[in-house]
Amino acid sequence: MMSDPEESVRLQGYGEMKLRTAIATVMPLAPRERAEAAIFRVRDGVRVAASEIAELASEWGIAPAPEVRSPSLAPEPHWPDIVRGMVREAPLPSLMVAFLLGVLVSRR
């Protein structure tokens, strides 16, 4: 379907804008939010189908937001390496203060 990128539409929750702007606003949203977004044509009040939005976005080079992976699938942080890097970059007086505070706290 040929849609004019300069056609006036109303994006629910955002107001009236051009079709290209509405699609550029919707595509970075998370998939669930993108599915709930509603774009209505001003000329006849008809809702633009989600399949048409996806088709126009790919035609115009507007990429959707990437799928976010579950935090449980993310690699484990290497905490010893992170702490070692922090200690290496810290100034000596702050390291001494941290050590002394640690000694005081452990004695109580």
Rank of each mutant, 00 (worst) to 15 (best):
M1S: 10
M2L: 04
M2F: 04
S3A: 08
S3Y: 08
P5Q: 09
P5K: 06
E6C: 05
E7N: 00
E7T: 12
S8D: 15
V9E: 10
V9M: 10
V9G: 10
L11C: 09
L11G: 04
L11H: 03
Q12Y: 09
Q12T: 07
G13H: 00
G13F: 02
E16P: 01
E16R: 10
L19Y: 11
L19P: 08
L19F: 13
R20D: 08
R20C: 05
A22Q: 01
A22K: 03
T25Y: 01
V26Y: 03
V26L: 05
V26A: 02
M27N: 06
M27R: 13
M27Q: 13
L29E: 08
A30P: 08
P31V: 05
P31R: 04
E33R: 10
E33A: 08
E33G: 00
E33D: 14
R34T: 09
E36S: 09
A37F: 03
A38P: 00
A38L: 12
A38Q: 15
F40N: 04
R43S: 15
D44C: 04
G45R: 13
V46L: 14
V48T: 10
A49N: 09
A49H: 14
S51M: 07
E52H: 03
I53L: 06
A54K: 09
A54Y: 03
E55W: 07
L56G: 07
L56M: 14
S58R: 15
E59Q: 14
W60F: 11
W60G: 00
I62F: 07
P64H: 10
P64D: 12
P64S: 10
A65M: 13
P66W: 07
P66Q: 12
E67Q: 13
E67C: 01
V68K: 15
V68R: 15
R69C: 05
R69F: 05
R69I: 11
R69G: 14
S70F: 01
S70I: 02
P71N: 08
P71L: 11
S72T: 08
S72P: 00
S72W: 03
L73D: 15
L73E: 15
L73W: 08
L73K: 12
L73V: 06
L73R: 11
A74F: 08
A74L: 15
P75F: 05
E76W: 04
E76P: 09
E76Y: 03
E76T: 14
P77A: 08
P77G: 01
H78A: 15
W79K: 04
W79E: 04
W79G: 00
P80T: 00
D81I: 06
D81L: 12
D81A: 15
D81V: 13
I82W: 09
V83E: 10
R84C: 07
R84F: 10
G85E: 14
G85H: 09
G85V: 00
M86S: 05
V87F: 08
V87G: 00
V87E: 11
R88E: 12
R88F: 02
E89H: 06
E89K: 13
A90S: 14
P91H: 04
L92P: 03
P93A: 09
P93F: 07
S94E: 13
L95F: 06
M96G: 01
M96W: 04
V97T: 10
A98L: 11
L100N: 02
L100Q: 10
L101F: 07
V103R: 11
V103Y: 07
L104H: 02
L104T: 02
L104A: 09
L104I: 09
L104W: 09
V105W: 14
V105T: 11
R107Q: 06
R107H: 07
R108M: 08
R108I: 05
R108G: 13
